[in-house]
Amino acid sequence: MKRILAVGVGGMAGALLRAGIYMAVAGGLGLWLVNIAGSFLIGVAAVRLARKSAELRLLVSTGLLGSFTTFSAFSADWFHYLESSVWVGLAFAGSMTVACIASAATGLWIGRRGVAS
């Protein structure tokens, strides 16, 4: 029960933060921002929270960062870009995916560097 509450509270905060960024940033840029920042932070959290309690990891990684980033809106944007041009659609999906993977890798790297020193 405590774990479900941790995921839920984190998820609520993540969704609200994402909605706030959508409102603050015009157009499709908000999705880029939340997915890149969230992927970076989940990489840092994977290292820094590895030895913390399961509840804290569920709150931050599964709840907050899992909800802050989103895949469904990405699928929607990709679909609409493809409707206008196959190449624009492929470029959008490819660059978002590569950017998020690079962000998560950078987050892991920075997280480990901090732990080692």
């Binding site: 989940i42 980033t69 895949f71």
Partner: peptide, 15 residues
């Protein structure tokens, strides 16, 4: 749906 789906978890697991 925004919270149910996730991009960061996918990226981290791939890395």
């Amino acid at each position: 749906l925004g919270a149910f789906t996730t991009f960061s978890t996918m990226a981290l697991d791939a890395v």
